[in-house]
C-alpha cells in the first residue's frame, strides 16, 4: 500500500517534469523572462532533478502540496474542498451500481435461459459499448430537454443528483453484472448447491444464503476496483452536469493553467484508489476466514 502510494507520488512528480519546464505551464504567454526566472527560483525549479524530487517528497510529507496559482492558496485545500461533492456522487453511484449489478447478475445466473435474462445480458453488453458521457447526454435529452422532469446540472437539490449518479453508475454496472453472473453460474454448479436443493431448500435461500455468499469474494474485489477508479468517470460526469467536484476542478484547472491543482487531484485520486483497495483487502479477511491463515 505504502509502496503504491509512493509510486503514485513519483509518477505525478515525473508527469510534472515531462515538458522539461513546469513554469511554462504556470505563466500566461508573454510573461517577461525575468519574471519567469524569479518564479522558477521561488519554486526551486533551478535545482537538479533529484533535489527537486526530495523537496517534492519532503513537501508532501509535511502536507505541502504546492500553491494554486489561480486561487493563491494551498492547492490541497482547493482540491479537498471539492472532495465532498465528488464523494457524494461516487458513493450514491456505487450503491446504485452494486444493487442493480448484483441483483441482475444473480437473477440472470439463476435462470440463464429465460427471455428476461437474455434481454438483461444483451442490454449489459450494449451498455458496455456505450460511453458514459453519451448515456448522460441521452438522459439530459429525454429527462431534461424533452420531458422537462429534471434540471440539466448543478448541485444542491436532490433532483440534481439523479442524472449524474445514474450516469456514473451506468459505467460500473455492466462489469458488475458480468462478474456476478459468471461467479454465480460457477457456484451454482457446485455439489453443495445440489445437496441444498435435495434437502428441500427454497430457491431464494439457495441463491442468496448459500451460493451468493461463496460467489461474493471476487465481486467484492471488482467493487473495490470500480469504486477506486470512479474519480476517472467523475471527471466526465461532473463536466457534463456542471457538478462542482474534483473532476470538474481538474478540467478547469487545465484550462486555467493551474497545474498544482491538477497535480493535487491526481494525488488524491491515487490515494483514494489505494485506500479503497486496502479496505477491500481487509474486508476479504473478514469475509473469508481462510485468508486469515495465509
Amino acid at each position: 500500500m505504502v509502496v503504491t502510494l509512493w509510486g503514485v507520488v513519483t509518477l505525478v512528480f515525473l508527469l510534472g517534469r515531462l515538458s522539461g519546464d513546469p513554469v511554462a505551464l504556470m505563466v500566461p504567454e508573454g510573461t517577461p523572462p525575468a519574471d519567469i526566472e524569479i518564479l522558477r527560483h521561488q519554486l526551486g525549479l533551478d535545482s537538479p532533478l533529484p533535489v527537486q524530487y526530495a523537496d517534492f517528497l519532503g513537501g508532501i510529507a509535511h502536507g505541502d502540496f504546492g500553491r494554486s496559482i489561480l486561487y493563491r492558496r494551498s492547492a490541497l485545500d482547493v482540491a479537498l474542498e471539492r472532495l465532498p461533492a465528488t464523494a457524494e456522487l461516487a458513493v450514491w453511484a456505487m450503491a446504485l451500481a452494486v444493487v442493480v449489478g448484483l441483483t441482475v447478475g444473480v437473477v440472470t445466473a439463476a435462470r440463464p435461459n429465460s427471455w428476461l435474462s437474455r434481454l438483461a445480458v444483451f442490454l449489459a453488453v450494449s451498455a458496455r459499448a456505450t460511453p458514459g458521457f453519451v448515456f448522460g447526454i441521452f438522459l439530459i435529452l429525454f429527462l431534461a430537454v424533452a420531458l422537462r422532469l429534471l434540471p440539466t446540472g448543478g448541485r444542491g437539490a436532490p433532483l440534481q443528483l439523479i442524472m449524474p449518479v445514474a450516469t456514473l453508475a451506468f459505467v460500473a454496472t455492466p462489469t458488475l453484472i458480468r462478474i456476478t453472473r459468471a461467479q454465480m453460474l460457477e457456484t451454482l454448479r457446485q455439489e453443495y448447491v445440489r445437496t441444498a436443493r435435495a434437502k428441500g431448500l427454497g430457491t431464494s435461500a439457495i441463491l442468496w444464503r448459500h451460493a451468493f455468499k461463496n460467489a461474493s469474494l471476487p465481486i467484492v474485489t471488482i467493487i473495490g476496483i470500480q469504486f477506486g477508479a470512479m474519480l476517472g468517470g467523475a471527471a466526465i460526469v461532473e463536466t457534463l452536469f456542471a457538478w462542482p467536484g474534483m473532476g470538474l476542478l481538474a478540467i478547469s484547472s487545465i484550462n486555467q493553467r493551474d497545474y498544482p491543482v491538477v497535480q493535487c487531484v491526481l494525488l488524491l485520486a491515487g490515494t483514494w484508489f489505494v485506500l479503497v483497495n486496502t479496505a477491500v483487502d481487509m474486508a476479504y479477511v473478514m469475509l473469508d476466514p481462510r485468508s486469515r491463515r495465509a
Binding site: T4, G7, T10, L11, L18, A229, L231, G232, A269, F273
Partner: peptide
C-alpha cells in the same frame, strides 16, 4: 508489476488529464 499497480491507481482519464495538462 509495481509500476502496473501504480498505473491501476490512476484511471486512464486522470492519467490523460495529468499528461495533457503538461504537454
Amino acid at each position: 508489476m509495481m509500476v502496473a499497480d501504480v498505473k491501476l491507481a490512476l484511471p486512464g482519464i486522470l492519467l490523460a488529464i495529468g499528461v495533457i495538462a503538461v504537454l
